[in-house]
């Protein structure tokens, strides 16, 4: 993303909406974007409403108001002069947008958002079967971001803990060695808003896998959010709850797949 300096009037609304804190007001009193920190999420470009006011008019009004010690302050969701401008990005920077802008579908899975289905469609796909547990480890969200070198640490730790990575997941597609959890080296320095590593393991491996996640998380320069999933029995109860309680975890929020989906007839 770029700022059109000819249009920018330095209102700073884009500064506060940037999830990565990558935008600041420069010495010329106009917005500037730190390209190394920008994850191409398009939040500023898409989320801000645009007024298309003539920049000279806005600058003049601001100047006059300043004389009276007043401040020109557009609504916080508006870029008054439509100064944010997307630029063309190429590999490896392309992964930033794929993992940061939820409107862009992942080429690998064809799914928007973070590109994952988890157990949201488990009633149709049977992705996580009886006796299995799904793990979703999200890095970078909220508002911290993550480099793929941090993701690489987590995928290695998970691989060592004996999980099976979900093949239909955008992060798995970027592994050069899936068995070892190795992320391809050319993207390791790319920063993204967040990504979700999906894997599964047998039910009895839950404490060991969660322990591995706890340990690797302590050495990361980002935040991690962890989700675990399992199938319910014929009564609607799940075996995971007791395992998590016994392991000392506190949990009360989650997603419940109601089982109303049906696979298409062959």
């Amino acid at each position: 993303m770029l700022v059109d300096k000819a249009k920018c009037v330095g209102c700073a609304n884009c500064v506060s909406v940037c999830p990565m804190g990558a935008i600041h007001i420069g010495p010329d009193r106009k917005a500037e974007i730190n390209q190394d920190e920008c994850v191409e999420c398009y939040t500023c470009y898409r989320g801000l409403s645009t007024e298309h006011l003539p920049p000279f008019l806005v600058r003049s009004v601001r100047g006059v108001l300043r004389l009276f010690r007043l401040r020109f302050e557009p609504d916080p969701d508006v870029c008054p002069t439509a100064a944010l401008t997307p630029n063309e990005i190429t590999w490896p920077r392309l992964v930033r947008r794929a993992f940061s802008d939820p409107v862009v579908p992942h080429e690998s899975t064809g799914t928007k958002g973070r590109g994952t289905a988890e157990v949201k469609t488990n009633d149709v796909t049977g992705r996580v079967g009886p006796g299995q547990v799904g793990f979703v480890v999200e890095l970078g969200r909220p508002s911290v971001g993550a480099r793929f070198r941090e993701v690489d640490k987590v995928t290695h730790a998970l691989a060592d803990a004996g999980v099976t990575f979900e093949p239909n997941n955008p992060v798995t597609y970027l592994m050069s060695d899936v068995e070892a959890g190795q992320i391809r080296p050319d993207i390791l320095n790319e920063k993204i808003l967040s990504c979700i590593v999906e894997s599964k393991a047998p039910l009895e491996r839950v404490p060991a896998v969660l322990d591995a996640i706890e340990k690797v998380s302590k050495g990361l320069d980002t935040v991690v959010s962890v989700g675990v999933s399992s199938r319910c029995d014929s009564e609607g109860n799940d075996p995971l709850k007791k395992i998590l309680e016994d392991a000392g975890y506190t949990f009360y929020r989650g997603k419940v797949n109601l089982g109303l989906g049906k696979p298409a007839k062959a």
Binding site: V119, G236, L240
Partner: peptide, 17 residues
């Protein structure tokens, strides 16, 4: 009268909280 099929629990944040 719905029997849940699967459940996913949030275990919250870890790392550089």
């Amino acid at each position: 009268g719905i029997c849940p099929h699967s459940v996913e629990y949030s275990l919250g944040f870890r790392g550089r909280t």
